[in-house]
C-alpha cells in the first residue's frame, strides 16, 4: 500500500488552474521531497492531501483512505508541520502539546508520556511550563515539530521545516527527520532548500506551474542533465575579475558569482580550465582554487522550472 497516492489531481480557483493532472505516489517509509518555485502548486497540493481543500478533479488516498470521502480516518494517520510555526503563544509548551494530543484523540496517559518524551527530544523540557511567546524562532519550530509528532503519525507532512533557523535547531530537526525515517515513518517534505532535499530525500518531485515536471531520486535526476557541468574557481585578488570577462570564454554558457568564487557552467570543463589559466596570466590574477562539479539538484530544478538564477539568487530559490 502506498502512503500517498495522488491520482490526476487538478484544482481550479476561478480562472486560475493551480494544479493540473498531478500524479504521484509516495511509498511507505520513504522521505519524499516536493520542490517548486513560489506559486507552483506546492501549498495547494498539501492542502488537498491533508483534506483542508478538495480537488476540482482527481483523488488522493492516504494509506488507502480517500482524503475527501474518508477525511478523518486519513488524517488520523498524519502529523502536519505547517510552514509557519503555528503554536499558541499564550499557552505553555506543555499546553500546546496536550491540546494537539486532544485534537488527535490521544489518551491522557499516552499524551503525557509522549509529550514528556518529545519535549526531551527537542530540548524543551526546561521551558515546558513557560508561555511560548518568549520562545526563539528555533524553539517555536522545534515545538511545532513536536506537536506534529504527538500522535505517532505514520505519515508526516513537513512544510519548510528548517527555513531560517539557527544551527542548533537545524541540526536537531534534521536529526529527528533522519531518525523518523529509520523507524518507518513516511516523510513528505516541502522545502526551498535544495541541498536539504538532496541529502534527506529518497525521491523528489519538482512541480512547476501546477504540473509535475519530474519525479525521481536526486542522483538520477542529476544524471538527466549531465551536460550541465561546471568549474568553481577562486581568484586573488577577486576584485580584478569581472563576470563579463569570464562570460566571454568560449563554451561557457553561464557565470554565477557565489561569494568570493565564480561558477562557470560548461559542457567542456578541460577546455574552460585552460582558458581560465590563460585569463589569470593576462589579467595578473592568481587562481587559488579550482573545483570541477557535476550537476546539482539545484541545476535540475533550474533547468526544469526555467528559473532565471541571475535574478533570483543562488540558494534561496524564491
Amino acid at each position: 500500500m502506498y502512503a500517498i497516492e495522488a491520482l490526476s489531481l487538478s484544482k481550479r480557483f476561478g480562472n486560475i488552474q493551480a494544479l493540473s493532472q498531478v500524479d504521484f505516489t509516495v511509498n511507505e517509509g520513504e522521505t519524499f521531497g516536493f520542490l517548486g518555485p513560489n506559486g507552483a502548486g506546492k501549498t495547494t497540493t498539501i492542502r488537498i492531501l491533508t483534506g483542508i481543500s478538495a480537488p476540482t478533479q482527481g483523488s488522493a488516498r492516504i494509506f488507502g483512505r480517500d482524503i475527501v470521502r474518508d477525511t478523518i480516518a486519513a488524517r488520523r494517520q498524519m502529523g502536519i508541520v505547517h510552514e509557519t510555526s503555528n503554536i499558541y503563544t499564550d499557552l505553555s509548551a506543555w499546553q500546546n502539546l496536550m491540546f494537539t494530543a486532544e485534537l488527535y484523540n490521544v489518551g491522557k496517559k499516552e499524551r503525557e508520556k509522549r509529550g514528556a518524551e518529545l519535549l526531551e527530544l527537542f530540548g524543551l523540557t526546561e521551558r515546558r511550563d513557560d508561555k511560548t511567546n518568549g520562545f526563539s524562532k528555533g524553539m517555536k519550530r522545534r515545538l511545532t515539530l513536536a506537536m506534529g509528532l504527538i500522535n505517532h503519525p505514520r505519515l508526516l507532512f513537513l512544510d519548510e521545516p528548517t527555513s531560517g533557523l539557527d544551527v542548533q535547531s537545524n541540526l536537531i530537526i534534521r536529526d529527528v527527520i533522519s531518525e523518523l525515517n529509520k523507524t518507518g515513518v513516511t516523510v513528505f517534505l516541502t522545502t526551498h532548500n535544495i541541498e536539504e532535499a538532496n541529502l534527506a530525500c529518497d525521491r523528489v518531485a519538482i512541480i512547476n506551474r501546477g504540473h509535475i515536471a519530474a519525479i525521481d531520486s536526486p542522483e538520477r535526476l542529476k544524471n538527466t542533465i549531465q551536460s550541465v557541468q561546471s568549474i568553481e574557481v577562486a581568484f586573488d585578488p577577486v576584485s580584478l575579475v569581472r563576470v563579463e570577462d569570464l562570460e566571454q570564454i568560449p563554451s561557457v554558457s553561464e557565470v554565477r558569482k557565489q561569494g568570493d568564487k565564480f561558477r562557470l557552467i560548461t559542457e567542456d570543463p578541460p577546455g574552460v580550465l585552460e582558458e581560465i589559466m590563460e585569463y589569470s596570466r593576462n589579467h595578473n590574477v592568481r587562481v587559488i582554487s579550482v573545483t570541477t562539479l557535476g550537476p546539482s539538484l539545484e541545476d535540475v530544478f533550474i533547468r526544469l522550472t526555467g528559473l532565471d538564477i541571475r535574478t533570483k539568487g543562488v540558494k534561496a530559490i524564491d
Binding site: 491533508t50 483534506g51 483542508i52 477525511t71 478523518i72 480516518a73 488524517r75 488520523r76 502536519i80 505547517h82 509557519t84 503555528n86 503554536i87 499558541y88 503563544t89 494537539t100 485534537l103 488527535y104 484523540n105
Partner: peptide, 14 residues
C-alpha cells in the same frame, strides 16, 4: 493571522 486556525482545520475532526 497566526495560522493556528489551520491546526483545527487539519485535525482529524469534522
Amino acid at each position: 493571522r497566526m495560522k493556528t486556525f489551520d491546526r483545527l482545520l487539519s485535525a482529524p475532526i469534522s
